[in-house]
Each structure stands twice: as C-alpha cells, then as structure tokens.
Design a protein around this nucleic acid. Structure first.
Lengths: 159, 159
DNA sequence: CGTATATAATAGCAAATGTTATTATAACTC
DNA sequence: GAGTTATAATAACATTTGCTATTATATACG
C-alpha cells in the first residue's frame, strides 16, 4: 500500500480505498446536500432541523414531543431546543395533553402552512439538481439502497 | 426503530414523500453510520474527523494543511483544531515547510502507524455490517451513485 | 522595485449539539 | 394504595462547529 499518486488535485482512488471511504463519502454527500439546501432555504428563515420538524408535523399534528423525536430520529433534548425556537418564532404551538399532564401536543400555527409549500418546492428542486446526473431508475435505486442500509443500521443501533 | 412501523397515526409513506425525504434519509444514514463507527472505534481514542485525517495523511505525508483541508473536504479552521488535538496527543507532527514559511507540512508520528491498521479493520467491519443486506453489486452501485451525487454537489457548491 | 492582492494558518466569539441530571407525572407491583 | 420504576419534558453544563477577523508570507502587476 505505498502507491504514491500525488498527481494533481484529485487522488485516483484504488478500489479498496473507494470501499473504505464509503463512510466518509456518505458523510460528505450528506453535508454538501444539507449546505446546498440551506443556501436555498435561507429565505424561509428556517434551519434544516426546523424544516424536518415542520415536515413531520404537517403529517402528524397533535403528536407528542417524544413521538416526534422518534419519527424524526432526533435526540429528545435537541428537539426541545428546536421546538423552543420554533415556538418563539410562532411556527408551532405546544398545547397541554388532556390525557397526560406531562406531555405536550404539537400543532402548526397558521403562519407555518404557506411556508410548507415553499419548503417542499425548494427541497424538490435541490434534490433534482443534486441527482441531475442520475436516471429516474438510478434515483429510485439510490433511495432504495439507502433505505436498506438505514434499516440495518437502525437495527444495529438498538442493540 | 422508526421507519417502517406506521404504528398509530403515521400514514404509509407515499412515493412522493419517499422522494422528498431523500435529504433526511441521507443525513440519518450518515449519522447512524458515524455513530456506529465511533462506538466501535472508542478503543482507538480517536474521533471520526481524526480518523479521516489519519487516513488521508497516511497516503499523503508531507502535505500542507490547506491541501489536507481540500482532500478531506474540511473547513480549514475546523482542521486546525483537529490537528491541534492530534499533535498534542502525539499522533502527528507539523514541520516547517522549507519552501513556504507560512505553511506547515504534516507527518504521522510512529505511534500512529499501528493504529491505522486497527482503524481500517474497524472501518471494514462496520461497513460490511451496515451493508449486510446488500449484494456485492448493490454495494458497488450504492457507492457509484453516491459518488455521482457527490460530484454534482461539489460542482454546485463551487458556484 | 514597490504596491496590491491572494494564501496559509490561526484567534476569538457565537451558535449548534451532545451529555448528564432534575422535575413532574404516569404506570406497575406487591 | 404505598412504593418503585418508567416516561415526558426540560435545565445546566461541556464540547464541537461555524463565522468573521487577524497576521505573516507569498505571488502578481504596473
């Protein structure tokens, strides 16, 4: 393993290296994609975690924070802070749960609803740009494969 | 522990939703994978960014910080701090560049070399476990597709 | 040459995130 | 039904990361 290829700007990766960089590759794509989305979502005045919350909430109004944390795969404490901010910015509200005095039920406020459309529009566009070089079948494949890996990792995490 | 249960009020993910969640999916997989790796890498006493540095450095000893930042797709300021820590822990050293008095050249210290093998071993194992449900062709495909998206996003970022 | 601009590394502060502990309430057990 | 254990939400603190200068040196230009 002493191949020295200080050629130009991009090192030509050996097959073994390519495999080994899988984790870093995932991480880089994820980071780049998030950055690209945020660049376009700046006008919304929403961070990425806030968008995630909004998305889940729009399909599950009235859920508890604990359930939202589950759905969105977010640490409950992190979620508290995201929600604090969103409440303060009048995107959402917390109502007391009549059946469980510990819990809150989460609702979108009216102001959030028009934003949702714009958010999805931006998301759709970013995704299409990021996947511009993939055929429709390949896009489907990529998602499918990622979902499989996600499932495996979720199971491993639980142990 | 979250995706496919649709226990109570969660509707089955419509095809459009699946697409739309691409970004979040990427992010989740990346986070889960990183967490899984770190869990196994704890014995190395290395963080993930440190592992990344080590990997790149092992194939490119003598490069500058700026170049390493490029290679590893890391913010230069973030890299400084990672390197500070690694220097202090005796994994690497910074030597003055004789040709450019602003720059440092980075080298692994002897102590780091045996660690590298263990690191790759852990990485290989984690990757195999994460991809356990994929065929060899699918693994290759996944990497290929991610690389394509990475390329596209890198180009978009530059603009 | 000497001045303008770019680059390598870093400092210092603000924002985000992870970690552990705390409080209130619910659910379970004997 | 009294005491233990589990859960929802949060607070307080530590760590990490991102952002905006700052300094020293190198390169480009006229």
């Amino acid at each position: 393993m002493k191949t020295n290829e200080a050629t130009t700007s991009a090192p030509a990766p050996a097959p073994a290296e390519r495999l080994r960089n899988f984790g870093f590759l995932m991480r880089d794509v994820s980071r780049l994609y998030a950055a690209y989305f945020q660049r376009h979502a700046r006008e919304l005045e929403l961070t990425l975690p806030q968008c995630k919350v909004l998305g889940h909430l729009s399909r599950n109004e009235g859920i508890s924070q604990a359930r939202l944390a589950e759905l969105s795969d977010t640490d409950p404490m992190t979620l508290v802070r995201t929600l604090d901010r969103m409440q303060q910015d009048h995107w959402i509200e917390r109502r007391a749960d009549p059946a469980d005095r510990r819990a809150h039920r989460l609702y979108l406020r009216e102001a959030a609803k028009p934003i949702l459309n714009r958010m999805w529009k931006i998301a759709d566009q970013c995704r299409q740009e990021a996947m511009a070089s993939l055929s429709p079948e390949q896009r489907e494949q990529l998602i499918e494969l990622l979902e499989r890996v996600h499932g495996t990792l979720s199971a491993l995490e639980a142990k």
